[in-house]
Design a protein around this nucleic acid. Structure first.
Lengths: 140, 140
DNA sequence: CCCTTTAGTTACTCCAAGGTAAGCTAATTA
DNA sequence: TAATTAGCTTACCTTGGAGTAACTAAAGGG
């Protein structure tokens, strides 16, 4: 994270440190509603390895985006939650997610992969598909 | 672009194809208000090489995000503009940019690098600094 | 005594995004 | 005749984000 050759002070490159990684948005998104244990995040994001998750959480913690709470127990229990600062990223991520979802549908419509009329989708999508999948985390 | 191992159908990874690259947001942002020639984009983004710009424009064109118009002339004249589809990314990018700008300021305030009271900034920033730098492209 | 559990760490590899530099075209200009 | 221009392409190299797998601690259960 935080590539060496970055234009200092560029808001784009700054923001990309937090949301440009393959799993960063997914991790933050799943933390949006509360506290999660390490394994809970991992299981919410199939394909995400322990190493990458640990790396990302360490980065977020160091940047004040995520808080870590360690319980003295064996086996270990560690909880992660967004800080107030971290919460500010959620509306940004929402926008990205909405675009991704909508554009994915458009692509399928043009491919003929999706056979539901686009007009129906436009009605449904924002009221049903998206809010549902946001709640369940499906597709993330 | 479009990494091989991508979870098919994941809206996050889909969106990151378009905004996750180091220069993608910058390129799209500078095209937001109209048509630009190849070199105009290049000069607007110091550090961006011709190869990377060409690669990105080719990707965007292929994906229907950007339109290319070639004029039969020597030396060549080529213009790029956002498609309607491409325009849908601008509000997303705006959100990212605003967050990046604000968070950058917060960082400086905490570092003591920035000596203007935060309360003053909150008033000014969204009405002056940001809209100005957006218009001039400063910091991109 | 060994297995399981959680939350990691360490060592290693890989690949593609990105950076660097040179070459190309063909008409115009000095 | 040589340089300049715009918009690329090609070849090459570097880097770091991400993937894989093995290893760890310490308590509790079978």
């Amino acid at each position: 994270m935080a590539s060496k050759e970055m234009l200092a002070g560029c808001p784009v490159q700054h923001a990309l440190q937090y949301i440009g990684g393959k799993w960063q948005i997914g991790i933050l998104w799943h933390l949006r509603e509360g506290t999660l244990r390490f394994n809970a995040i991992k299981e919410a994001l199939p394909g995400l390895s322990e190493k990458v998750l640990a790396d990302n959480l360490k980065f977020f913690e160091q940047k004040g985006i995520v808080e870590k709470q360690v319980f003295a127990a064996v086996p270990p229990k560690v909880e992660y939650r967004l800080t107030q600062d971290g919460q500010t990223l959620i509306p940004v991520i929402e926008k990205i997610l909405l675009w991704g979802y909508a554009h994915l549908q458009d692509e399928r419509v043009q491919n003929g992969t999706l056979y539901t009329p686009a007009t129906v989708l436009e009605e449904l999508q924002y009221k049903h598909d998206i809010s549902d999948s946001y709640k369940t985390g499906a597709g993330l």
